[in-house]
């Protein structure tokens, strides 16, 4: 309070340029308010996100069954990492599957969602209906999506095998049990939801594109395809960035749909399920699970940081 009264007094005494002194500087009160408004959320964030993350890194060098206090923790150096890389069978499949997931989403599901958005942006007849139909799965949790698709894929009682008439032991297709195809079946189920999500985001972006740009392109004789790739797509750069980041995040945090299907075993290994399987429940290999979590963290940072860094640097240069 003292500061603000001084400030008022100062501005009164220097009446010639009151505005400048008043608005160019933050008063101490402003600073306190700013510090509180940014500081409290930052402190909460650091405490609940970065402290546990750092503790996970510390625990990844330990062997601990989660029972007893700190004194029960045995420090084992990089043993956990060594074992993960050498004798833990689910690890390499899990890394591979995470990358397959990422590739499938980036090259198939997300472009398809964008394609649907572009089609719906044309104000076709009944586009509201299509829009809703594609969007409905997004409101379902991935765990629920997993349950729905299990009913479709089930070997004897499932929809697909019954439609194909392949429910006999000799010819049935084991969609979720055959490890060479089940990952892709799960990816289809996950995409069912992801496509709708991307579609609605992109559609929102498309609605914001200035129509005169498209008209100008049309007058210049551009085809629809050219208009999209050379005019609309570059204009939507911020949206494209958001969509790419969302796609990467969704791929790396893939968990629930696989966990409800078979807890991430038999062809559906993912880093996230490997972490969970080692840490929750009675099977508390806290150190081992933490080491897996650290690997997932590094992988995520390794993919997303260079991309954001490059993009933001390019933006700064342009500006």
């Amino acid at each position: 309070m003292g500061a603000s009264t001084t400030q008022v007094a100062t501005s009164e005494s220097t009446e010639k340029k009151p505005k400048k002194s008043r608005f160019s500087l933050h008063t101490r009160r402003d600073k306190v308010v700013l510090a509180l408004l940014l500081g409290i959320p930052a402190a909460i964030h650091v405490f609940f996100v970065w402290v546990p993350a750092l503790l996970s890194i510390v625990l990844s060098f330990a062997r601990w069954d989660g029972i007893g206090g700190v004194e029960a923790i045995e420090w084992v150096g990089v043993t956990n990492y060594e074992q993960i890389a050498t004798i833990y069978p689910p690890f390499w499949p899990a890394v591979t599957h995470n990358f397959i997931w990422l590739g499938f989403f980036i090259f198939i599901a997300t472009p398809f969602g964008m394609f649907l958005a572009v089609q719906l942006d044309k104000e076709l007849k009944g586009s509201r209906f299509y829009q809703n139909a594609f969007y409905v799965p997004v409101v379902l949790s991935l765990a629920l999506v997993g349950f729905i698709w299990q009913l479709i894929y089930s070997p004897e009682e499932g929809l697909i095998n019954n439609l194909l008439g392949r429910t006999d032991p000799e010819n049935l297709i084991d969609w979720l049990g055959n490890p060479s195809i089940n990952l892709y079946m799960i990816l289809i189920a996950a995409s069912w939801r992801h496509v709708g999500y991307i579609m609605i985001l992109y559609l929102a972006g498309l609605k914001g594109v200035d129509p005169t740009l498209k008209e100008a392109a049309a007058i210049d004789g551009a085809t629809e395809r050219q208009t999209f790739f050379h005019v609309v797509f570059p204009v939507l750069k911020p949206i494209n960035l958001v969509i790419l980041v969302i796609t990467i995040i969704e791929s790396l945090r893939a968990f629930d749909i696989v966990y409800v299907t078979n807890k991430g075993t038999n062809g559906l290994e993912l880093l996230s399920t490997a972490v969970t399987n080692n840490i929750i429940g009675e099977a508390s290999r806290v150190g081992f699970g933490s080491a897996l979590a650290v690997i997932l963290l590094l992988l995520s940072l390794g993919i997303i940081i260079p991309y954001l860094w490059r993009t933001f640097r390019a933006d700064e240069k342009a500006a």
């Binding site: 689910p90 075993t265 038999n266 399987n277 099977a283 508390s284 290999r285």
Partner: peptide, 29 residues
Amino acid sequence: RPDFASTVVLPSIQNWLNDPEDIDGITAS
């Protein structure tokens, strides 16, 4: 031990069921 049953035995038997010939590989792992 629960950490052995659920993280090792369970996935190992499943892997073996996919490739029943590989008894040596699965038991070694």
